[in-house]
Amino acid sequence: MSNTPRFQQIKTYIQKKIDAKEWPVGSRIPTEAELCELFSVSRMTVNKAVRDLVNQGRLERTPRLGTFVCQSKAESPLMDIRNIADEIQERGHKHHSEVVLQKQIIAPDDVSMRLGMMLGSEVFKTEIVHYEDDNAIQVEVRWVNPDCARQYLEQDFNHITPHQYLMEACPLSTIEHTVEAILPPDNIARLLNITPKTPCLLLHRRTWSGQQLISSALLYHPGDRYKLSARMNVLD
């Protein structure tokens, strides 16, 4: 007999059904009473298994209708900066990217100010769509100070990410994050394969190496596929 707690066995059973697409997104799972009968356990045990999966974003409870499989959301840490390719691979999925733009431009005034550069300065700009399996989960629009990363435009960003290159060329020491909920511009909606009425999370990111501002980026995420999280220790 398995030593795994019964609630964990129920969670595993439900997760396997979801992962195998036997219970696709939007489908209703068996009721708690049916799961109690199937596993010969108490309602409390089933409730804990289901509640854990709701908290993990795998299931969603709808009053008077039942519990449904929901779209699993990718997740990134808000208080840290990590390579999106590594995050996706650690979730057991495949990352690939599509470069939309990679060129040197005259920085718009707002970009010059965000990078602490003189108005009219030249900067490197990239626009890249990041995919988790076949789903677009992030559009990365980034401006880079050429004095800090002179070979930025020479990189093949279909095979490495800007994060990987910048961490090697000018190791990051400080990050600044601001998050807002938006309706995406039409061009971003097309790249994410969503409608302009689909809510998005927009992460504004600036990075420093030592005292030097390196890059400013806008990271667009479809709100129904992505979430940002933070965890910190609070000392008394």
Rank of each mutant, 00 (worst) to 15 (best):
V139T: 08
V139K: 03
E140G: 07
V141P: 10
V141G: 10
V141S: 02
V141W: 04
V141L: 05
R142H: 13
R142P: 04
R142S: 13
R142Q: 14
W143F: 10
W143L: 06
W143H: 10
V144H: 06
N145C: 07
N145V: 11
N145M: 14
P146W: 09
P146Q: 00
D147H: 13
C148T: 10
C148G: 10
A149G: 12
A149V: 05
R150M: 02
R150W: 05
R150C: 11
R150Q: 07
Q151G: 08
Q151F: 13
Y152P: 02
Y152N: 01
Y152I: 09
L153F: 00
E154P: 04
E154R: 01
Q155I: 12
D156S: 14
F157R: 01
N158E: 14
N158H: 14
H159I: 03
H159S: 04
H159M: 09
H159V: 08
I160M: 13
I160K: 06
I160C: 15
P162L: 08
H163M: 03
Q164N: 13
Q164H: 04
Y165Q: 08
Y165I: 13
Y165P: 09
L166H: 05
M167Y: 05
M167R: 10
M167G: 11
E168F: 05
E168C: 01
E168S: 15
C170S: 09
P171S: 02
P171F: 06
P171N: 06
S173P: 02
S173T: 14
S173F: 00
T174C: 14
T174W: 15
T174H: 14
T174K: 10
T174E: 15
I175S: 06
I175H: 12
I175C: 04
H177A: 02
H177N: 15
H177Q: 08
H177G: 03
T178F: 15
T178N: 11
T178K: 05
V179F: 10
V179R: 14
E180K: 10
E180D: 05
A181V: 12
A181S: 08
I182N: 01
I182E: 03
I182V: 08
I182F: 01
L183T: 03
P184Y: 06
P184N: 07
P184M: 09
P185R: 05
P185N: 00
P185Q: 01
D186R: 07
N187V: 07
N187F: 01
I188R: 13
A189S: 12
L192F: 03
N193H: 09
I194Q: 00
I194A: 07
T195P: 09
